[in-house]
Amino acid sequence: MNPWLGQLKKEYRLGKGGALGALIALFLYLGLGVYTAWRMGKPETFFAFCSVAVMIHVVYMAGYLCVSYFLEHKTMHLWLQSPLSVSKLLLAKLVNGFAALALSLFITSVVTLIAGTMVMDVFELNPDMTWPDVIYIGTFLVIHILLISFYIGIGITFLWAIYLVTTKTLGKISGWVIGLGVFFFGPWILAKWEDTKLFDALFIWGKVNLKYNDFVYGIFKHVYVGYYFYHLLLALILFLAASWLIERKVEV
């Protein structure tokens, strides 16, 4: 068997417990939603529960990876002894996390779709709404949740690499301080940079108008291809930096 497939299977086994736990939590939560809606006599409450469940998936990868990285700490020497490069080792975790995310999000989306169109009849609330609209909005949302969740997962991976390097070389306390520093200041610095004129010149291009102007209360009127390209680039840089740091700087 291909070594990476073997690694993929190992990560599947490592992550299985957590993913199942998350799924059970999801069902319990949705059950609570059904109960609340029934007690209040308002079916639309269940749809609200479902919407929150869908949105919460943006942090799914982060949660999955935190568990996976935490569990791996005990077996770091086995993990690093592998003949695979660190980028492939990380990718095995990311792919498994993404599969678990996709499954969980798929289930939640189907339930939400049922809740929105049958329990709380969206077509009755908004007579302009048609099935193609629902599919369009749903697809847009699902794709973006997948992307954002994966993106945050890569951010977590980078933080983990920073944490590993600093705790080994500077000690546990400094490791946490630097890790938290990057966690809080990293996004802040990025936000500052994304506000600059240079950023706009570089990445705000390829405007695509969305089909519905009043889509989600008019927040998303259009998107920029360049902006996606920027985040893709940033994700790639973070991933490669994390791989490099662990490959070259981490000792066990």
Binding site: M1, N2, P3, L5, G6, Q7, K9, K10, R13, L14, K16, G17, S82, P83, L84
Partner: peptide, 15 residues
């Protein structure tokens, strides 16, 4: 989480 046999299988795939 592996059995003895699966542990061997994992390393056989890796190396």
């Amino acid at each position: 989480f592996y059995t003895v046999g699966e542990t061997i299988g994992y390393y056989a795939s890796l190396y």
